[in-house]
Amino acid sequence: MPSLPARRRSLASSPFRPEPEPVIEQFATGDLVTHDVYGMGRVIGVEAHAVTVDFGTQKVRVTSPFTKMAAL
């Protein structure tokens, strides 16, 4: 399992706002999605930290945080 990068700690006395928590999109079986590399596809499998997407020519397992994929 790939580890996520360490979050930078912010001090209460800091004048800068802490970085917001990243929102990880949730997908369900049957969702239509688009991927920056593979194009348009349909979710055919959902796991805890990954989804399997059928892009027509190939089936690809995409792991969380799904930065290159968006729901349509």
Rank of each mutant, 00 (worst) to 15 (best):
P2H: 10
P2Y: 05
S3G: 09
L4A: 13
L4Y: 12
P5D: 14
A6I: 06
R7V: 14
R9Y: 13
S10Y: 15
S10N: 14
L11Q: 06
L11M: 03
A12S: 11
S14C: 14
P15C: 01
P15V: 02
P15T: 03
P15N: 02
P15R: 06
F16C: 02
P18D: 01
P18N: 05
E19D: 12
E19F: 08
P20D: 13
P20G: 11
E21S: 10
E21K: 11
P22V: 07
P22D: 06
V23R: 09
V23L: 09
I24K: 04
A28K: 07
T29W: 00
T29G: 00
T29P: 00
G30K: 06
G30Y: 01
T34I: 14
T34D: 10
H35S: 08
H35Q: 12
V37M: 04
G39E: 08
M40N: 15
M40P: 08
I44F: 03
I44L: 04
V46W: 02
E47C: 05
E47Y: 11
H49L: 04
A50T: 02
A50F: 01
T52A: 11
T52V: 14
V53H: 01
V53D: 00
D54I: 02
Q58N: 14
Q58H: 09
Q58F: 02
K59M: 08
K59E: 11
V60Y: 03
R61K: 09
T63A: 05
T67F: 10
M69G: 03
A70K: 15
A70Q: 15
A70P: 00
A71H: 13
L72E: 12
L72T: 14
L72D: 11
